[in-house]
Design a binder for these strands. Structure first.
Lengths: 214, 214
DNA sequence: GGTTGAATTACACAATCGTATAACAAGAAT
DNA sequence: ATTCTTGTTATACGATTGTGTAATTCAACC
């Protein structure tokens, strides 16, 4: 008998995590069609058969990977809130800037996200994942807006959140797809001005960049 | 010998157009991976081999199809300007609404557009097509903004255009991907309010819906 | 320290992919 | 009518796809 490939047993969580990460890496690099079962397995350091041991199908893996991606993007945007200033306007300003700056705004991230858009339209499970994460992000934004010292109706609060989310998403998209079309810091500055204009507050003045770094 | 499939000879333009349309249809329906050479040929009513007669490769066909798609989207947005009102604010308002309404804003169109995003990042020719069409749209918007009766600097004009384009794109995206998450007419209304807030004008009042229809 | 269960590898299979090349046939030219 | 050009079909090929199943080997358990 020829020598069989040696291997180590790992926990289910670890293996699933590795496979998900490998899948996302490959989609980011080469699009959905580059994330083949064999390529994912190789990237994760296992053999192709193992994928079907942890996921019922490739479609299953795809769904889980998308969920992980969306989680990560929301988390990265929210990270700036931890340890930041307490002032409501400053918190909102920091959140807005973080949402259109790396690592959230990033060419690779956009390509990654776009790869799943069609599946979201077509697959009900994917759409559910998308809706939940989209609303989570928007509600987080709405919470920040609601904390501002200005009285508004619930209806206005909702449309303000949708509008601000729109600017953020749009600028995130354009700045990420065509980074060379904008000057350094131009997109974050425009984001602050626009969101401020929509909410009728001076967000630019409220912005407090992270000073923990030298 | 068995009967060979009968066929008619067509002009080069007609055949190329049919193949491009078939490719876009299939991408819209089933994503990039559904647009195989065989499926495109069948949809266009020809046999697979003919594709390689009109396009040097499938990649070639893909690029041409993307160019056609982008053209169509810009054209659809601009169509509302023809035969519309002369007032600068009304023209801008109508353009904004058209950009976030069907047929520009549409689940199929978004899926279609997203399918190409990754290729845009990776392929230089695709990126060139994207940049040209993105700037064409933004410049059209900037022209409408510049026509407003308000004095602004060139720099402000540019950032205003980028900001307004951002809101439009973001709302276009969200409204198209999750149409059921918004009330009828909610997205256009928010678009008018937001763009108006950014430019500090009352766009809602300026909006003049098409009255040529009964 | 065997024994056992399950994680992992290995292999096979049918389907489908893009591409290359040769055979045919439709319609214009002569 | 016959020839010629070339648009079009037909067919083949190797590579790659997702998946199903059997063979193995690791690591925990008694």
């Amino acid at each position: 008998m020829a020598d069989r490939r040696p291997y180590r047993r790992e926990s289910e969580e670890r293996r699933r995590e590795d496979l998900i990460a490998a899948a996302l890496d490959l989609v980011a690099e080469g699009g959905l069609h580059a994330a083949t079962v064999r390529a994912i397995a190789e990237r994760a350091g296992v053999t192709p058969g193992l994928i079907r041991h942890y996921f019922t199908s490739k479609e299953d893996l795809t769904r889980v990977a998308y969920q992980r991606l969306m989680e990560r993007m929301t988390t990265d945007s929210a990270a700036v809130l931890l340890g930041g200033p307490d002032d409501a306007m400053a918190r909102l300003a920091n959140f807005v800037v973080a949402s259109v700056s790396p690592p959230v705004a990033d060419p690779v991230a956009v390509g990654l996200w776009a790869a799943f858009v069609h599946d979201v339209r077509r697959d009900a499970a994917m759409r559910e994942i998308h809706t939940a994460n989209y609303l989570a992000f928007r509600n987080m934004l709405q919470g920040l807006i609601a904390a501002l010292p200005r009285p508004v109706s619930d209806a206005k609060l909702r449309s303000d959140a949708i509008a601000c989310n729109g600017v953020i998403d749009g600028l995130w998209l354009e700045g990420s797809i065509l980074p060379e079309a904008f000057a350094l810091g131009e997109i974050p500055a425009i984001a602050l001005t626009s969101v401020g204009a929509i909410l009728n507050i001076d967000l630019v003045a409220a912005y407090q960049p992270d000073r923990t770094l030298p």
